[in-house]
């Protein structure tokens, strides 16, 4: 019954001696998400083209609300104003991408790209690299490396493990939540109660948990970068 629940379609491409494997569904779905976001951006931009009038038009008000939300809830938590300004686009894109990835599973026959470990891991690792780069840039080389042997030199392995645990837990949190929801949904709609309940569960896992996890993912990215830069 659930043989394919823990499996996914893998596209195997062989170019010469190289053998590349791709997760077909995740890639197609992430393309869909990117296309949706670009269309959204283009649509919002059309409203911004107009001159500023007495009263902002509907799209302008929407952009205002969106930017306000992103700034107020996410980047306002950065330690410094400069960091918030520099990373606004990155954090906002991260949030919107993950949010739409989570929400797209509401559409029948669509899968969340975030229920693929590769996707979440690449995003988490990107955040990790970002945080290390910013820490290095802001603190300077000496203070950056000194941060690893604090408070005592023999804590070095512990600090390194602690740093590496961050992206791992970051990636697994998103993956676990979305994949768990998808599995629960598949089991309930495939075997237990195929009517009404799956719709409610889909709304709950797809919309509610999806939104919260997207927010948490972006928020944790902010927190990780903050901690790396500050300490």
């Amino acid at each position: 019954m659930f043989e394919h629940l823990g499996e996914k379609l893998i596209l195997h491409v062989t170019i010469g001696s190289f053998s590349l494997r791709f997760d077909l569904v995740a890639i197609i779905m992430s393309w869909v998400v990117i296309a949706l976001l670009v269309v959204l951006a283009l649509w919002l931009r059309r409203g911004l083209r107009q001159e500023i009038e007495e009263k902002p038009n509907r799209i302008q008000a929407m952009v205002d609300a969106l930017i306000d939300l992103l700034k107020g809830q996410l980047t306002s938590n950065f330690a410094s104003e400069r960091l918030a300004r520099e990373l606004f686009s990155f954090i906002s894109t991260l949030f919107l991408f993950v949010l739409l990835c989570n929400w797209i599973s509401v559409i029948p026959y669509f899968q969340s790209p975030t229920q693929d470990l590769n996707v979440t891991f690449s995003l988490a690792l990107l955040v990790f690299v970002m945080s290390q780069v910013f820490a290095f840039r802001m603190k300077g080389g000496r203070r950056y490396f000194k941060g690893f042997i604090e408070p005592y030199p023999f804590m070095l392995p512990l600090n390194i493990v602690g740093e590496i645990a961050k992206p791992v837990s970051h990636a697994f949190r998103l993956f676990g939540n979305i994949f768990g929801g998808a599995i629960l949904l598949a089991v309930v709609s495939g075997e237990l109660i195929p009517v009404v309940v799956p719709a409610a569960l889909n709304a709950f896992f797809g919309l509610f948990i999806g939104a919260i996890q997207a927010f948490v993912f972006a928020m944790l990215a902010v927190a990780y970068i903050n901690v790396a830069v500050e300490s």
């Binding site: 697994f172 939540n177 919260i212 928020m219």
Partner: peptide
């Protein structure tokens, strides 16, 4: 929400 997300890590593991 963020605190709960971090606490949830163990459950997710």
């Amino acid at each position: 929400v963020v605190g709960q997300a971090i606490t949830e890590s163990t459950g997710i593991y």
